[in-house]
């Protein structure tokens, strides 16, 4: 066992962990961050996605000790107190969650995409979320939700120029 310090959603958390513990287990079991889902355990479904430092990663393929001294963000971290983010509101209005199990990962991934690229094309959305699975098949509703947020945003002058 060794002690690690990880900043999770802006809050410093110190815990003893085993060297062979997954970041997924650390978040779910030791910190009880239950929005991070354990499903395939092999890096295929993407439902354990979290932001580690600057990148989205699949936490079932990361050791807890690797996160020592780093920042981790989950869906809780992107949500303002008592409010929903634009992409969360769009998920609700488009029925982009059916059973809801994969929703935290999709919200986090589409939120991150829209931060980096305010007006993603359909191809860019597909590529950015190609590591995520929704077994209810709400892909179309998710695409509509992303489009709504994208369209509601003002375009930069140079983007208008490019599209005219």
């Amino acid at each position: 066992m060794r002690e690690i310090t990880v900043r999770v959603n802006g809050q410093e958390r110190k815990r003893l962990v085993k060297d062979n513990e997954l970041l997924l287990d650390f978040l779910r079991e030791r910190l009880e961050v239950r929005s991070v889902k354990a499903a395939c355990w092999r890096g295929e479904c993407g439902l354990c996605t979290v932001k580690l430092g600057d990148h989205l990663v699949k936490s079932c393929l990361v050791l807890a000790v690797e996160a020592d001294g780093k920042e981790v963000e989950t869906v809780e971290g992107i949500t303002p107190d008592g409010e929903l983010t634009p992409i969360q509101k769009a998920f609700v209005s488009h029925g982009a969650a059916q059973c809801g199990f994969c929703t935290p990962a999709w919200v986090l991934a589409t939120h991150e995409l829209l931060q980096a690229n305010p007006h993603p094309s359909e191809a860019e959305l597909t590529e950015a979320t190609s590591g995520l699975v929704c077994r209810c098949g709400t892909y179309n509703q998710i695409r509509e939700a992303v489009e709504e947020v994208s369209q509601a945003r003002p375009r930069l002058a140079k983007e208008n120029l490019a599209s005219s």
Binding site: K18, D19, N20, E21, L22, D25, E29, R30, A38, W41, C60, L63, V65
Partner: peptide, 17 residues
């Protein structure tokens, strides 16, 4: 505390960085 199923735990090892 026991985590997950036996199939998804990792074998014991010492981690070095």
């Amino acid at each position: 505390m026991s985590f997950g199923s036996p199939y998804v735990t990792l074998p014991d090892f010492a981690y070095h960085r």
